[in-house]
Amino acid sequence: MNEVLKNNKGLSLTIGKSLFKNPVFVNSGTFAGGVEYNAFFDISKLGAVTTKSFSLEKKEGNAPPRIWETSSGMLNSIGLQNEGINYFLDTQLCKMKELGADIILSIFGCDTEEFKKIAAKIKTIEKELKAVELNLSCPNVREGGMAFCAAPGQIGPVVSEIKNIIDVPLIVKLSPNFNTIIESAIISKENGADAISIINTITGTAFDIETFKPRLANISGGLSGPAIKPVALFHVYRLAKEKILPVIGMGGISCWQDAVEFLIAGACAIGVGTANFINPVISEKIIEGIAGYMVSMGFSSLDEMVGKAIKES
């Protein structure tokens, strides 16, 4: 084990009032609650586990087929299938705590009212959470979802109302599908958000050339995986340069080198998503890889490396 890993302080960071042991998070919807992945490695090693997004009530999600592989990427149209926030409170939270996971709870609502109701429910357990991520960017639902990013004015009330209810750092997850990331980040900050996570998936589609049918029952889905990494990296770089809020960078990160690229582009932390499906231990390897890189480059803390590419460009 190298010095940076031994001395956890070298990898740690803060978002709002929460301290994270390292900058490697796993993305909402790719890791469930982490229980499955704990069979492969100790998930308490992660900077944070971001849960699948929970809505107020159970959501059945979209009709199958829901996934289609593309060149170095995948389209999904899961549609936020989840058991509802009560399932998180009554069942999943306990399991995640037993495993020692640092939790970012992802929540989703169709409108400000639904978000407020969810916030009221999580108020009693807010101390168990490192942060709450507001999923304002799912491309696969008709109501809410990335509609918030299409009209960023709607983001303000959601953030401020939730901030009034719970005292937990708030992360706003944004979509790359509209040219509104910077505007949305400014509104998020003005209303009390603590960080921005980008990018959610990029809307795409695929068709069967023999049957002429769409590959996804929902017709469109969200593209993720290595194919979107350059796009995600650009959005992270562009937003981080503005120094509006800390940026959690995600989109196609598949190895520690990818993670380092996001960090030097200005991300304070990174999220691993689709890569978990291919290699269930990749996020652990990325933590080790970042630590090794820091030692070889002579960085003794994340602060020394985050945004290096912004300073150079």
Partner: peptide
């Protein structure tokens, strides 16, 4: 068609 294969992604319902 599956992605994770372990019950996390909900792709294969």
């Amino acid at each position: 068609r599956m992605a994770c294969g372990i019950g996390a992604c909900m792709g294969c319902v």
